[in-house]
Design a protein around this nucleic acid. Structure first.
Length: 712
DNA sequence: CTAGTGTGGTAGC
DNA sequence: GATCGCTACCACACTAG
């Protein structure tokens, strides 16, 4: 397979694969325009997103034949968006811009009927409903818990009208989730039934499609769509976003002498969710079998696909997460493999958090299916807490495990011990009892490397760790880590409970591809970096983060690269990194970024690339050495400005004010005064709501500036 | 000593 | 023909000044 891929990369018809692709594209475009059949899509710019059925290349061809234009990335002027799956954030972007989102079926049906069908009939239902849930949740009646006494709250949990409404709400969405396969685009045979008048048989189109090579754009995006680890991180971010927009409204924990925490985790989340997606008959058939979620593969006994989640039957038979499918079926020949359904996982995750919102106002999300809750003093009975489990089960059919403890680590360990479908309370004494004989890697934060290191120190069990010499631990692991290890072993928290409302601004973001990367030409490498940067740009824009620094990491095959390697994986690699400062959109930095590493690597050894962006707080930007020797004065100026706007709503705006940012970038070291004048004018004039600026006019602004100037 | 940069480890399924 | 090895964040070693 690798050989074939490389042959394609060095196709003799072009100097590089990219050029070859362009030639091919031109040729294709010519063919298409010559085969133009109608002007149906004239003046439309249609964006194709993600994996499509029929395929993107086929749709492109079809749209081209009928006079339309196609793009694969969002650009201004896009009139329609075609997709099957779409993240909530992207959905928001398109719906905000009032760009209709349609299934590919729309294109086919327009062509069939030779008219532009009303887009309202096609806007993706499932996603629209997901958005509806969020809106409804926001306006749904909120329990005024603080005004209720404790028993009233618990009573309300069981009985109130609001409760019924919430239940109905979630039940209705759940039905949608379970039948969502109904909403998938129609297949070809269904289509021909719908449009018997068609002149050209859809089947014919479909066959043409088979001969058109798949376009190579969006390799990063396509890859991410089926990468479980990518999805997993996005789900977590989605959950955080959801909680910020829909704050928890449960009872407010009071400062009691003895706070309680729960740790809640959905048991083998992906596995349960994928199971729920099966038809009932299949579910009955698989009942009691060992199950695992993995990419759908034909040759399980040879596959190096990862098991991403497996049920507890499978675990008892020796299967575990992260194992290769081939190893798993060797241990457990009856293992039944289930398919991923990432959209469904995401949906369940948000519903999970929607339920948790009722139970505490202090929630700390850990991942898409796992959170800590700080409990108020009203939970006095274990039964009160089990209500959470029951609710999640009755509303989502997902079994969970809850650990209860006086601190986070106790709760966390309790969950681990009680899995699956369990509940456990640990206090200090019981914790000591249950933990002491466990291997050290039973504790969180102790992974492969630290286990190895501890082995070298003759520390194997938690009890060994408890008795270890703190000086030695600190020496070997550092001050903090060493102390943390000891704390963990003794059931003392080192993780701080941080409810969602304390969430700090994201500091960095990164986009990686370290799978199926085999490169022979620098142009291909550039294309990959470009795509990664585009994605980075997209994400930072979506999340309104301003990046001031970019870093690139290239994974380069090490001498023992092939050892333990997944077939298309990156194997053992050395990392080559480099960092640059940026003044422009990050997808315009390809050349600079590539240049910074290209001399240190051989293209044929590249096994993966990772670009990271650092969020530039204006304060940090001001401090960065890019601003040169007068940075200190500029910082002071900035801080003064901050103080000025301290008590106004403008503070936030000033932080994100692009003009301000740009002006700062242009500050001239030779003449700080002038530069700051520029900055300050820009600040005033670019923002209409700085009232004084308008009242005083230009001269007034100058005076104002002089006024602010004195402190410099 | 300080501030900035580079490196490595862990977590979720 | 393979089957999706991501990503945020922390701590600390190191370096320049």
């Amino acid at each position: 397979a690798a050989n074939k891929y490389e042959q394609r990369q060095s196709d003799p018809r072009g100097n590089s694969y990219g050029e070859y692709r362009n030639m091919k594209q031109d040729k294709l475009d010519q063919q298409l325009s010559s085969a133009k059949q109608s002007e149906l899509f004239k003046d439309l710019l249609i964006m194709l997103n993600g994996r499509l059925e029929p395929s993107a290349s086929y749709l492109r061809q079809l749209i081209g034949q009928h006079g339309g234009q196609v793009v694969f990335q969002y650009t201004s002027g896009v009139t329609h968006m075609i997709c099957q799956n779409l993240s909530a954030s992207k959905f928001n972007i398109f719906s905000k811009r009032k760009i209709p989102i349609m299934y590919p079926k729309w294109v086919l049906m327009c062509v069939e009927q030779q008219k532009l069908i009303d887009t309202n009939d096609f806007i993706i239902q499932e996603i629209a409903e997901k958005l509806d849930i969020q809106q409804q949740t926001q306006i749904s009646p909120i329990f005024q818990i603080s005004q209720l006494n404790q028993s009233q709250f618990l009573e309300q949990q069981k009985q109130t009208e609001e409760e019924k409404q919430v239940l109905q709400l979630i039940e209705s969405t759940q039905t949608t989730a379970l039948v969502s396969s109904v909403l998938q685009p129609l297949n070809i045979s269904q289509l021909s039934q719908l449009s018997p008048l068609s002149g050209t048989s859809p089947q014919a189109f479909y066959n043409v499609n088979r001969q058109v090579p798949q376009p190579q754009e969006n390799t990063v995006q396509r890859y991410h769509e089926s990468s479980r680890l990518h999805q997993l991180t996005q789900f977590k971010l989605n959950a955080q976003e959801f909680l910020i927009k829909n704050p928890p409204y449960g009872p407010k924990p009071t400062d009691t002498a003895r706070p309680l925490f729960i740790h809640i985790d959905i048991d083998c989340f992906f596995c349960q969710a994928s199971f729920l997606k099966l038809p009932t008959s299949k579910q009955q058939q698989l009942h009691g079998y060992p199950l695992a979620v993995s990419s759908n593969i034909k040759n399980a006994s040879n596959s190096t696909a990862d098991i991403s989640s497996c049920n507890y039957t499978a675990r008892r038979l020796g299967v575990h997460n992260g194992m290769w499918v081939s190893q798993a079926v060797q241990k457990c020949p009856n293992l039944q493999l289930l398919e991923y359904d990432f959209d469904f996982y995401n949906k369940l995750s948000l519903q999970f958090y929607d339920i948790l919102r009722q139970f505490s106002s202090d929630i700390m999300p850990i991942s898409c299916d796992e959170a800590y809750l700080k409990l108020s003093g009203i939970y006095t009975q274990q039964e009160d807490i089990k209500i959470i489990k029951q609710k999640i089960y009755s509303q989502l059919q997902l079994s969970t495990t809850i650990g209860l403890g006086e601190n986070l680590i106790q709760a966390r360990i309790a969950t681990k011990l009680a899995k699956p479908n369990g509940f456990m309370f640990l206090n200090k004494e019981v914790f000591q009892q249950v933990i002491k004989d466990k291997q050290v890697d039973f504790l969180p934060q102790i992974g492969f490397k630290i286990t190895e290191e501890l082995k070298n120190m003759n520390i194997f069990t938690v009890e060994d760790l408890q008795n270890a010499d703190i000086k030695l631990l600190r020496e070997n692991f550092g001050e903090v880590k060493g102390q943390n290890l000891l704390n963990e072993a003794n059931g003392v928290d080192f993780l701080l409970f941080q409810p969602i409302q304390n969430l700090l601004k994201q500091k960095s973001l990164q986009v990686s591809k370290n799978f199926n990367v085999r490169i022979s030409q620098i142009s291909v490498f550039k294309q990959l970096v470009f795509e990664l940067l585009q994605e980075l740009n997209q994400r930072s824009t979506d999340r309104q983060l301003k990046l001031n620094k970019l870093s690139i990491t290239v994974n380069v095959a090490a001498a023992n690269n092939k050892q333990f390697m997944k077939k298309m994986g990156c194997g053992v690699c050395n990392q080559v990194r480099s960092t640059i400062f940026i003044h422009k959109k990050c997808d315009q930095c390809v050349e600079e970024l590539v240049d910074s590493v290209v001399n240190k690597i051989k293209m044929e050894d590249v096994r993966g690339v990772d670009v990271m962006g650092f969020v530039g707080e204006v304060k940090n930007i001001v401090q960065s050495k890019e601003l040169g020797q007068n940075a200190q004065k500029k910082v002071e100026f900035w801080e003064k400005l901050q103080q000025q706007s301290q008590n106004t709503a403008e503070k936030q705006e000033i932080i994100s004010c692009d003009d301000y940012f740009d002006a700062l970038q242009q500050i001239d070291d030779q003449d700080v005064a002038n530069a700051l004048r520029k900055v300050f004018s820009a600040q005033c004039l670019c923002r209409g709501n700085l009232e004084e600026a308008f009242k005083l006019g230009i001269d007034g602004v100058e005076d104002m500036f002089e006024d602010k100037w004195r402190w410099l």
